[in-house]
Design a protein around this nucleic acid. Sequence first.
DNA 1: GAGTTTGAAACT
DNA 2: CAGTTTCAAACTC
Length: 876
Amino acid sequence: MMDSPGPSKNNNGSSSSASTLNNNNNDAASSESPQVQESPFLRFVKTLSPIPTKASHTTQGCLRLSSPPLVFKSPRISHRETQLTERPQGTRSLGGVILQSVNEGNMLGEAPGDSRTSNSQQSLPERFINDTQQVFDSKNDENTQYYSSPSCIDKYLVDPGDIDQMYSAGQDVEQQSTDPAEASLSDQIHPKNNILNFDRQDGPGDKVEESLPLSEGFNKFHQENAAYGEEPEEMEVENNDVQWSSQEPAKLESILAADVFEKRYSHDTLPQGVKGCEDYNEMVPTSHVTAENILQDGSKATLKYHGIRRRCLQFGEAASNALGSNVKLNATSNKIIMVKPSELVTSLCPQRGSGNFPLTGPKPTGIGLHINRIMNAIPTGQAATMGVRLSDGSQGMKSTSSIRLQRIENVKRSILSSNVDGRSLVNTRTESHEIDDTGNSEDFNIPSSPCQKKKKISETADDDGCKHCNCKKSRCLKLYCHCFAAGTYCTDPCACQGCLNRPEYAETVVETKQLIESRDPSAFDPKIVLPTTDISSHMDDENLTTPSSARHKRGCNCKRSMCLKKYCECYQANVGCSSGCRCEGCKNVYGKKEDYVAFEHTSSKERESSIVEEGSDYTFHKKLERVASKTVYGLHCLSPITPSLQCSEQGKEAAKSIIISGNYLPSPESDVNMFASCANYTKSSENLHSSQALLGTNEMLGSTPYDSQIECSHAALLQLTPPLSNPELCGTSSFSSIANEWRNISQSQPTHGCISQLPSGSLCWRSSPLTPSNRVGEAQYFQCSESDSRLFDILENETPDVLKEASTPMTSVKINSPTQKRVSPPQSRHFEIGSSSSGGLRSDRKFIFESVPSFPSLSPCVNSKSNGDDDEEDIS
DNA sequence: GAGTTTGAAACT
DNA sequence: CAGTTTCAAACTC
């Protein structure tokens, strides 16, 4: 860091250009706010990001768990870039503020910012405007105050997810509750307030930065903020922007036209956002939502807006995608539009189902996790660590959980009813948080902020999710640098020397990224990807979510580590090796390359046969069993990380596979988790959504570019799982009953041992943060979600009846095979959600193959969902 | 904490 | 595309 030329220096070139751009922007903006639609900044960003369009479209919202670098790819991406750079500065970022405010307001009930309370009484719209104005005003002061004021690191420590939750909670409050107390909370939570607080409270240099991985969006803000603080020039420009933006609020008030409002708001509302948030796309979608919401219910708008905005920032592309989906949602349902992060998350799943899902984009289903991000997002300790950390960051979360649950449910309903696109990968994260909150509250680290995890998690967990780089020669501008590769800025914890991967050098970073991308467009794509395009196509289907098939995009090249050490990227990502690996003597516990190849081969054969036999589920199950027996890694695949969804997915087949193989490690938690997840699913469609979201996250893993979204999704997945475990979340009754059944069943299975083994699902939880590569039996498990009885039936018998039931999309068990080969779709039942994209065959086949190799996680949920459409509808 | 090992990334 | 070098993380002591 220090070695590197002063920020100003490096930036001079770029900064100057940037500044000019900004100025132009300012001019333009000042001249006419209306044009807000495209801010000069956005244009600039667009110009900057070569990849953008590609990535943006290609990126799959959900799939991209890891995609940090989105920034580079698209205008939004550019946005992200800034965000990314800001990662470390989370403390600075609004996100941190938001977190604080949220936490304080919601959780603690404390009134962090006086400013907040002051506005509390105002109508939301008014407040919003005022807040924005204040924000802008405050921004002017930020230059001086921003850094000067020591921020409460602790506050920042709160996970972004928490923030989401908070918002969500706040939203819930607004939406659901009319209680004065809640209203007060909501007021506190109110984005405006948050923003204000943030600006004021955040300290520039706070080391908090480190800890907060922060959502990209926040990061962006942070970066900008940081930039302000650090770079006078930029500050000025920004100030101009701010002023400009500040002017807009008034217009907004007068106008409040949805469109205008949206545009401006998306860009302008957040001071940081003005500059940093160039994610016009993202914002737009959100803005739509907000605008509509506002129109309908001004009160909701602000919160929503924040939630949306935040997500957008974080997820960048995902956000944009989500937005797109959101827009649709808006059309269908206002609530969805509400943009609650959680909603977004939920929407993700549905989106997939809808097929609109961005995930299906051109790019491969790469999970998109950069290892770093993955790591960050999903620390090995996962649940345990997560929980701890969360507790640290935000204790209040739990309290809000119930609210969130309700909200989530509502969201789900709305989404389901509305056929929301699932793009809201962005949401996935938040949602997962929410879920987590509900469940364990803490559990999940928010992938969004790897750093946060690091700090907190690292403390608690052996493997902290966040990695801090220690680059000495690369200046953190090469892919050697995990931070850079992950699209995040280096933070204080990093021990890098001459680091240029800092917000101060945002442009340099961007340029470098662009350069790298020019050489390798996929350089920043998630490394973990769902192998098969089919999967992506299936994303529509529930299965999509299953990360089981996740594989390293490029494969490893291990020679001596036998893929048993972290030297191996596959192992590090908790995914099995695949045919793409050139490893020697592969012993990857998550899946041996050989097994994978064999599996593919088998699956291909089976697929052929399955086509013939499509009718019989029994055959399908047999195949699965065979495959499972062949590959142990299925369990491994269940990697700890895999969210509850996985567990659910694993469900039956997982159990089978386990039984068959007997290799699986029993994990007490797994049972609980799985059951919990199941229970959750069964209980509420929301859960299903959440699970879907999880699935989505998993899928994201598979999804292409490693948009931050993907990461988020991972995180979401992780997070989601915990909630499941949480008794509160899961309907205890249903959950317990299911669990009991499950236990009974498992116990009944003599050799296989059962529950403990079944817990393999649990394994998913713990083991791989990312998601286990492949898992068997996911689909079946889904059935559980559908109904306990069904699950039970499935478990006991793979009888045709079950199959029949299974024939339901869920049961059919779409499985993502690493090979992506589709075995045979036992049943053609279409999941309404994904059916459109491909015929039943596709989905069916997928299930078969994937089920074995892939981990169960997501798909079940999806399936359940798809199947559950009925349920959902019922619920709704 | 220093040194070694390892494999990805970068370079040729 | 293959081979080599560079790099930083992972690992060992």
